[in-house]
């Protein structure tokens, strides 16, 4: 584009001299001012140099431009740490955030209705976070590359397990905090409030194990989740009120805790023993 309405253009000699830096100060300034508004002369200047120099400079720029894009969580999902980038995939991070919101928002909403309802909501929701995480981590769409990822050297139980852990940890921490808040208006010893941990882990361990069978782990997670929710609500139900403390006490009994622990241990051992079935699937 020519903003200068003039017929004067820089002559070839001056242009070449300007390009090599050997043009005197005042004429050079004049050339500069002209180039600012004259595309034709800019192109002519470009032609006085070596095209390879421009390409070399472009390659340097391209090295800075050609980077994986960083989303809003780019700093944390670390495109620099390749291990983190295959675990903290966008879908998994979104699932973790959703989990955190659920264990905070739902109890808060329930608390508005009735104080005890918050505790019931938490007792339902908190253990289900790792259950859902385990079910989701097995899915193809948990991986940005979908089915392609199944044919790579990284495919297998370690990746699935790490993703499940990532989502669970975030949600569980949030649930823990929520619980401490809720516990302020329920009369019961604090330790009781975490009696759901082992049962929750037991359920998630079962989902992880399901992934080594021909069962769909997400369906197993859904089934277990609904059963758990129904059991908690039923256990808390009393005529005209909710008594979640009853559920808490039941969960805290040594027998149940021991049973939950053994389910966790056995399931995890079995999952690791059968890990080859995660890497080389029997079902599409």
């Amino acid at each position: 584009m020519n903003t200068h309405r003039t017929n004067w253009h820089v002559d070839d000699e001056d242009l070449a001299a300007y390009g090599t830096g050997s043009l005197a100060s005042v004429p050079a300034t004049s050339v500069e001012a002209h180039l600012m508004g004259c595309q034709g002369c800019r192109e002519r200047l470009a032609r006085t140099g070596q095209p390879q120099d421009i390409e070399d400079a472009w390659l340097t720029l391209a090295d800075a431009v050609d980077r994986p894009s960083t989303g809003p969580l780019g700093r944390f999902t670390g495109r620099h740490n390749l291990l983190r980038s295959s675990i903290a995939t966008p879908t998994m991070v979104a699932a973790a955030l959703a989990g955190i919101v659920l264990v905070v928002a739902v109890p808060l909403a329930a608390a508005v209705v009735a104080g005890d309802a918050a505790l019931v909501a938490l007792l339902v929701g908190a253990p289900l976070a790792p259950v859902a995480a385990a079910g989701l981590a097995y899915r193809d769409w948990a991986d940005p590359a979908g089915e392609i990822s199944l044919a790579t050297a990284s495919a297998g139980l370690p990746l699935v397990a790490k993703r499940a852990v990532l989502v669970s940890v975030g949600a569980l921490l949030a649930a823990g905090i929520s619980l401490l808040v809720v516990s302020t208006w329920v009369a019961a010893p604090a330790a009781l409030f975490f009696s759901w941990c082992l049962p929750g882990l037991a359920l998630s361990a079962l989902v992880m194990l399901a992934g080594t069978t021909r069962l769909d782990p997400l369906r197993v997670a859904l089934g277990l989740g609904l059963t758990w929710a129904a059991a908690v609500v039923a256990g808390s139900w009393a005529p005209r009120s909710l008594r979640p403390e009853a559920v808490l006490h039941l969960l805290a009994t040594p027998a149940l805790q021991a049973a939950a622990l053994s389910v966790v241990v056995v399931s995890l051992f079995a999952t690791v023993a059968r890990r080859d079935l995660v890497s080389y699937r029997r079902t599409a």
Partner: peptide, 19 residues
């Protein structure tokens, strides 16, 4: 293929290389 829609082609191919 079911590729993640919010990735750029560069992101995706680089990610598969990571895998």
């Amino acid at each position: 293929p079911g590729l993640y829609a919010n990735f750029t082609p560069f992101d995706l191919v680089d990610y598969v290389a990571v895998l």
